[in-house]
């Protein structure tokens, strides 16, 4: 099997597991862990793409909420903006500089040249 086919099979498996998690979570889980979701059904359709994509995170949070979540971490916003901004800036600059270095001009200045005659 080619690497490309293997990657696609993995992606398919990921989405199928996500579909199973989505079915379970939207029918049983969501009402257990979020009172605001009880009796609200139309919005659940909007959650399906997210469930397909990040189902491991969903399972982890579902488990934590079933166990009884600690309340304090909920009010501790991440403080990594400066590091994230610096990393993003460095990557952007690297991408642009490398691109500039790789730019080529059509080699119009190189004319075809016969090196050796036929048969030699």
């Amino acid at each position: 099997m080619s690497t490309a086919a293997a990657i696609l099979d993995l992606a398919r498996a990921w989405l199928w597991i996500g579909a199973a998690v989505a079915a379970l979570f939207l029918s049983i889980g969501i009402g257990r862990i979020d009172p605001d979701a009880r009796g609200a059904f139309v919005f659940r359709v909007l959650l399906v793409p997210g469930l397909l994509l990040i189902w491991p995170l969903v399972l982890w949070r579902w488990w934590r909420l079933e166990k009884g979540d600690r309340w304090l971490p909920r009010y501790r916003p991440p403080s990594a903006h400066a590091s994230a901004a610096a990393a993003m800036s460095a990557l952007i600059m690297a991408a642009l500089v490398l691109s500039y270095g790789a730019r080529q001009d059509w080699p119009d200045n190189i004319a075809p040249r016969r090196i050796t005659e036929a048969g030699s």
Binding site: I110, P112, R113, I115, T116, S120
Partner: peptide, 9 residues
């Protein structure tokens, strides 16, 4: 018809 060896861009 062999045209020989060439250098091209």
């Amino acid at each position: 018809e062999d045209l020989g060896r060439w250098e091209l861009a």
